[in-house]
Every structure is written in C-alpha cells, then in structure tokens.
C-alpha cells in the first residue's frame, strides 16, 4: 500500500514536470523513428492501403543504386572542401579579431556573422542573383572568360557555387566559436612565451594551436554534420542542377521519397544517413572525452 501510494505520487510529479515533453518526444521522434525502420522493410508507395514486406530488398536497392552513391560521393567531396575552408578561414578571422590590435573589432565580428542570421533558402536566392547576374556582368564587361557565363549553368562550376556559399555562410559562425576558445587562453602563457623570445608564428604553432584543439573538435564536427545534412542552400541555389549534377544526399533522399514516392527505399537511404551522422557524432564524443582525460 505504501509503495503504491509512493508510486502514484511519483507518477503525478513526473507527469506534471516531464509529462508534456515525454509525450511529445515519443510522438515526434521515437515513434516516427521506429516506424521509419519498419518502413524500410516494406514497398509502400505512401498512398496504397496495402503493401507487402520485402525484407532487405530496399537496402539491396540502395546498395546497387549508382545514382545514390554518386550523390553520396558528391556530398563527401562537398563536405571535404567546406570543412577545410570554413575552419581555416574561421580560425584566421578569429585570430585576427582577438586581442586589442584591430580597430572596430566588434563591427567586424558582427559583420562576418551576418550570413548566419538568415536562412539557407534566402541566402541561396541572394547568391543565385549574384552568380547569374552580377558575376556574369563583371565577366562580360571585363572580358574574364570563366565569369562570362553563369556558373549555375555549368555542372562543374555549380558544385563550387555550393562550396563558396557554404564557406561564406559558416565561416562567421565558426569564427565566433574560435573567438570563444581564443579568449580562454590565459594571457600569461602568451606573455611568457613572448618574453622567452617566441615570435608570432612560433607562438601560434607551439602554444595557441595546441590549446585550440577542443575548439577545433567542435567546429570540425559541426561543419561535417551540417555538410551532410545541407538542403536549403542546395534547393534555393542550384535545385540539384544542372542535370542533377549537384544533388547532395539530403535532396536525393527527399526526391526519392516525396517525388518518386518510393518511401521504403527513401527511408532506407535516410537510415543510412542516420548511421553515418550518428557515427560522426559518437567519434566527436570519443575525442572530447579522451581529451578531458588527458587534460
């Protein structure tokens, strides 16, 4: 009797404090996730009332789908370049904008961050105008060959427009994270090194960069994750074109499910994306923990 009352009390408290979040969490994430796993074993088209179990045939289709792997490899290439450039540029900006040596530091920080306030769709549309009108105008007026036609119309160049816009979008965000890291480096360390005669570059290499490893773990993994899930800029800027040459993985999955109506296959691809992103995040946790132990 006593335990039963205690149980009811607890249940009441739980429902009062965590009831809404628990219910919404299960109905919006867990249930769809489990239903999604179930979907991968069916051949449902999203409309028909009946469907059959196809066991692993959706997964087999995914493995054999050359278009899917092309899109995946394109995404890997896109992630590779954006991670590299975003982090390098973000760090250089942060390094140049910490300490009291630059006038208008706040204005510069604020300015570089601006693209992050605006959604990917709007950014994509802004750049569509820049690539198809502004740059073409420059190219034609100054007779610069590669700029005289729209990069969005050329399969090779269209890929680079995605990289350029993503670099522009995310470098300011990573700059802010790097600034947070740089301001946490004790100034005594830098001063001591300066007294010992270490020059700027030497200080950077032997003191600052090693101390910035935790920041780099955050920014690199954040860029990787966002890279694999990018959709908005892809849709607004290139729409996957020309000739499906810039269809990154998220857009590929979207089209498979909602336009080609192959929900089972689409969900199998989405599940593959989940495994990949989860593995990346767990690697990040592993590195962070390892670093904490060493420190």
């Amino acid at each position: 009797m006593a335990t039963e009352k205690r149980f009811l009390d607890r249940l009441k408290t739980y429902l009062l404090f965590a009831g809404p979040t628990t219910f919404v969490f299960f109905t919006v994430i867990i249930l769809p996730f489990l239903f999604g796993v179930y979907l991968t074993f069916t051949n449902w088209d999203g409309i028909a009332k009946t469907y059959t179990f196809v066991r692993f045939s959706n997964y087999a289709t995914v493995v054999r789908d050359r278009m899917f792997w092309n899109s995946f490899l394109l995404t890997v290439k896109y992630v590779f370049y954006t991670v590299l450039i975003v982090n390098a540029l973000g760090f250089v900006l942060a390094y140049a904008l910490t300490g009291d040596t630059v006038r208008g530091q706040n204005l510069l920080r604020t300015g570089f961050f601006v693209p992050n306030l605006i959604g990917g769709i709007i950014l994509g549309l802004v750049w569509r105008f820049v690539f198809s009108n502004v740059l073409v105008f420059i190219g034609r007026s100054l007779k610069i060959g590669p700029l005289s036609y729209s990069w969005l119309a050329n399969p090779d160049k269209a890929f680079w427009t995605l990289v350029i816009v993503s670099v522009w979008q995310y470098s300011g965000y990573m700059m802010i994270i790097f600034i947070a890291g740089l301001t946490h480096i004790p100034s005594e360390l830098i001063e001591a090194a300066t007294i010992d005669g270490a020059g700027g570059f030497h200080r950077l290499r032997t003191i600052i960069l090693p101390l910035m490893v935790p920041s780099f773990i955050v920014t690199v993994f954040l860029t990787i994750q966002r890279g694999f899930m990018v959709y908005d800029v892809n849709l607004a800027l290139t729409q996957g074109g020309p000739f499906k040459s810039t269809e990154l993985i998220s857009m590929f999955v979207y089209e498979k499910a909602f336009l080609a109506q192959q929900y089972g296959v689409g969900q199998s691809q989405a599940f593959f994306l989940f495994l990949l992103v989860a593995a990346i995040s767990l690697t990040q946790v592993y590195f962070t923990k390892k670093l904490e132990v060493e420190a």
């Binding site: 994430i29 769809p32 239903f35 909602f258 969900q267 989405a270 994306l273 992103v277 995040s281």
Partner: peptide, 17 residues
C-alpha cells in the same frame, strides 16, 4: 541519445504518420 538522429532520418515517417 536522440540528439544523434538527424531530421532527415525521421521526416518521411513523420509526414506519413
């Protein structure tokens, strides 16, 4: 743990349900 699940992994069943 659910923070590991990207939106794309649940969007199709979410719309279905």
């Amino acid at each position: 743990a659910a923070m590991l699940i990207p939106f794309q992994a649940v969007m199709i069943p979410l719309v279905q349900i």
